[in-house]
Every structure is written in C-alpha cells, then in structure tokens.
C-alpha cells in the first residue's frame, strides 16, 4: 500500500498509479484500423483523420480521464502524411511513446509530434519507390502478362501476393516500431534504409528497362523495300501437290528457310528491329520523361499519344 502511494507521488503527472500496457490485441486493432489511414485524406491536414482513427483503441486503453482523452484525440488530429504502409512503424513508435506518457514518463506533445513528422518524410521516401514503383509494377506486370491471355491466375496472383506482402509489412514494422520505441528514428536514418531504397531502385530500373522493350508497342507500317526473290528462295506454290502430302512438302520447305511468297517485303519496323529491338519504345519513353520534366501533365501526354496514334494511322505511318 505504502509503495503504491509513493509511486503516485513520485510520478506526479501520472494518469494512473498502475502501469497500463497495450496488449497484442490492442496493437492488432490499431494495425487493422491503420488500413484506413487515407480514408479522410484532405487538402488541409492530409492523413490526420485516419491517423487519429487508428489511434483510438490505444487512447481508450491508455487514458481513462475525459480530459486526457480529449488532449490525446486533439494531439493525433495534427497534420500527418506519409506513404500509407510505412506509416506502420511510425504508429508503432507513437504507441510506445503514448504508453510511456500514460505511465507518467515526461513525453510531451512536441516530442510525439516531432517523432511523427521526423519519421514521415524519410519513410515516405522509402515507401514510394519500394511499393509504388517496384513491387506494384513488377507484380502488376506479372499479373497483367498472364491476364492478357485470359488467365484468371493473373489477377489472383497479383491480389494475393500484394496483400500478403502488405499485411506482413504493416504488422511486423508496427511491432518493430513499438518495441524499438523512439530508438527507431536513429536506426532508420542509418545504413539499412539507404540500402533498401537503393536495392529497390536498381531492381526497379532493371525491370522498367525490360518492360519498355516488351510492352510498349509501336509498329511502323511503311514499306521500305519490296524485293523480288530469285527462284528457289521461295516456295513455288504451283509445284506443291494439292493434298496432305503437299502441306507436308510446303512445311518442310518453309522450315528449311524458304520464303512464303516471291517478293520480300521489308517495313520500316523490320529495319528498326534489326538495328536494336525496342529502340522506338525507348525513344518514346525518353521523350515522355523529358516532357514530364518540363512539367507537361501526364494526362496531356496520354491524350496527345492517342491523337498521334489516330493521325499516324490515318496517314498510314502506324
């Protein structure tokens, strides 16, 4: 009894003499709610509403006095914005800080807001390239390449892999943040963070290079040359018997390298392909990058390309 009174006296600003702790169930609840962090995204304070919404189970658990609850709610309605998944480690650290505060540690509003703002910038710098520009394009391209043939596995793979990665990332980084407490800020500004970002951009650039070659399609139609082949270089259809035997002969001749018709047509595209396959898509991508850097809106470029496609088709170029 005496001991308890003493504790209360020492920690004068303690909310409760007994130590309150967030259980795993509380943290799970916060993690689930942080799924909706962008729900009330607004131009004034961005993710603040979702952040506060996620914090509510913890606030309810940690503070019993109405006055403290009010202050906590207001504290967590401050400006916040980062990549929605890397918000999780910030949530974890904030949970640890709030827990300390509820138990009487001298953690003030400025410290909590400072940790939130201090972490959100660098972490958004990791989340955007890793999730939006590496994982999603890769899984998306994988799923889409299956889907183009009508294969249901495409969408299923994309959906499952994405959500497994996302949920695992959110839960484990939140737990990591919670356990590491405020120490995480130092850790994250260390080497690991930079390594992850660099590794992701290497992989991302590599995959982008291959995607441009494979998936940007431009086909130049104009015929560059039309050469009449010498006899014996093409299949002489008039000498092929009109029977199953004939099909066999024709296929054998085709297989040995004979052309299908007496004239060899070379389009502009064939010439370009023999130079470097995918050269035009590459140049088009570089042009788009340059336009984007010149602050041309992506929508304008997209609509412009449609116009080019229609006009190019009309004049027989594409």
């Amino acid at each position: 009894m005496a001991n308890e009174v003493e504790t209360t006296e020492v920690k004068a600003n303690a909310v409760e003499p007994k130590k309150v702790e967030l259980t795993q169930k509380d943290r799970r609840s916060v993690c689930w709610r942080s799924t909706f962090i962008q729900g009330s995204w607004n131009y004034e304070r961005m993710q603040n509403g979702g952040w506060c919404y996620a914090m509510i189970p913890a606030i309810k658990k940690l503070y019993s006095k109405k006055e403290d609850q009010r202050e906590a709610l207001k504290r967590h309605l401050e400006f916040f914005n980062t990549h929605p998944y890397v918000a999780s480690p910030v949530v974890g650290v904030t949970l640890a800080l709030e827990e300390d505060r509820a138990n009487g540690a001298p953690v003030d509003d400025v410290a909590i807001q400072g940790v939130k703002v201090g972490m959100m910038g660098p972490l958004a710098g990791v989340g955007d390239p890793v999730f939006w520009f590496t994982v999603r394009p890769i899984l998306g391209a994988l799923g889409a390449s299956l889907a183009l043939t009508g294969n249901i596995l495409g969408p299923i793979l994309f959906f499952l892999l994405w959500n497994v990665i996302r949920i695992a990332f959110m839960w484990y980084t939140q737990e990591f943040g919670y356990k590491a407490g405020s120490a995480i800020t130092e850790d994250l500004s260390g080497g690991l963070l930079q390594k992850v970002t660099k590794g992701a951009s290497i992989l991302g650039m590599f995959i982008l290079g291959s995607l441009i070659e494979r998936w940007v399609s431009i086909d130049f139609k104009p015929v560059v040359s039309s050469v009449t082949l010498s006899e014996g270089a093409y299949i002489d259809w008039s000498s092929i018997p009109n029977s199953v035997k004939g099909i066999q002969t024709a296929l054998t001749q085709y297989d040995s390298g004979l052309a299908l018709s007496a004239t060899k047509v070379t389009t502009l595209q064939d010439n370009l392909d023999s130079l470097i396959p995918g050269l035009v898509p590459l140049l088009l991508t570089l042009l788009c990058m340059w336009l984007l850097k010149k602050k041309v809106s992506p929508i304008v470029i997209i609509l412009g390309l449609f116009v080019v496609g229609i006009l190019g088709h009309l004049i027989g170029l594409l």
Binding site: L208, L284, L286, C288, P298, G309, L318
Partner: peptide
Amino acid sequence: GMAIGGGMVVAVGYAMVINMMATKEV
C-alpha cells in the same frame, strides 16, 4: 488509331516511374 495510341501510352507510366527513381548510379 486509339488502339495504336493505347500501345504507346504505356510509356507515360514508365516515364513517370523512371523520373522518380533514376540516378546516374542505377
């Protein structure tokens, strides 16, 4: 013509991504 344009607009998305990530190193 729109289908041809559709084959090209893919490049815009890639260009957005590259502008974000590209450094001399990568």
